[in-house]
Amino acid sequence: MQASDIMTTDVVSVRPDTSVFEAATLLAEQHISGVPVIDDHGNVVGILTEGDLLHRVEMGTGKPQRSWLGEFLHSTRKLAGEYLKEHAVRVADIMTENVVSVAPSADLSEIADVLERHHIKRVPVLENGKLVGIVSRSNLIRALADALRPDPQAAASDEAIRHGVLDALQGRRWAMSTENVVVKDGVVHFWGTVSSEEERKAILVSADHVAGVKGVEDHLGYPVVFAQM
């Protein structure tokens, strides 16, 4: 799946000259946590999020006055930036300008990596520099829910199920040998030894995404250590 498959195309946006108060009202009414900022030519020039609106003098949530030493230890750029976040009345003055974006062809793993790496909740989808959609964490969760929805018609032979499990385990250093995977009447039996609880859980989970699996039986154990006399 790609960004174009799951993105929201009816995107709520604001202009750089939109007032902070109008933008805050929009976020509240639309139940969203951020909006892209679009200029007169349709270009994305920034993004405004709830985080940009947290510290406002109107709510009494502005940064407390620092001591003279605290003021001295911070750059004037940082201090001026904080003042803007607290007092500015135009979106252009408080929005994040360095916008992270993805292309419509970006796959979901790339999008998830972008959201995690940049600690953001949504990412605009741009095509030829123009906004065509937006992908949020909720879009990814919805895609996951659809992917995990069981197919009641799914059926597979024991041999097909076994091959599916072995494919899932292939190349994993923590996987047991192939002869320790047995499938009978749709139930996967895992035998062998593991060195950690994480290994045990990972092995058992390998069968969860294989079509036709009716159950999983855990026969895994830890190596027996004999004390030397």
Rank of each mutant, 00 (worst) to 15 (best):
Pro64Met: 01
Phe72Glu: 13
Ser101Arg: 11
Gly164Cys: 01
Ala80Ile: 10
Ser206Cys: 07
Pro124Asn: 01
Pro36Thr: 01
Trp174Asp: 13
Ile38Phe: 08
Ala160Met: 07
Leu84Glu: 08
Phe72Asn: 06
His74Asp: 15
Thr8Gln: 09
Gly42Asp: 06
Asp208Thr: 10
Val45Gln: 00
Pro64Gln: 02
Gly129Thr: 10
His219Arg: 13
Pro223Gly: 04
Leu131Glu: 04
Ile6Trp: 11
Val14Ala: 08
His55Ile: 06
Arg162Trp: 07
Val89Leu: 11
Ile134Val: 04
Ser33Pro: 00
Leu53Arg: 09
Pro16Thr: 09
Ala227Tyr: 15
Asp5Ile: 10
Ser138Phe: 04
Val91Ile: 13
Val183Gly: 06
Gly60Cys: 07
Asp158Leu: 04
Ala112Asp: 00
Phe190Val: 00
Ile203Met: 07
His118Gln: 12
Leu131Ala: 07
Asn43Glu: 10
Tyr222Ile: 11
Gly34Cys: 08
Glu110Asp: 03
Met176Lys: 11
Ile111Glu: 00
Gly60Met: 11
Ala28Gly: 11
His41Thr: 14
Leu54Asp: 06
Ala227Cys: 10
Val89Ser: 14
Pro152Met: 03
Ile134Gln: 03
Glu127Gly: 06
Ala202Glu: 08
Val102Cys: 00
Ala147Pro: 03
Glu97Val: 10
Glu29Asn: 14
Gly60Asp: 07
Lys63Gly: 05
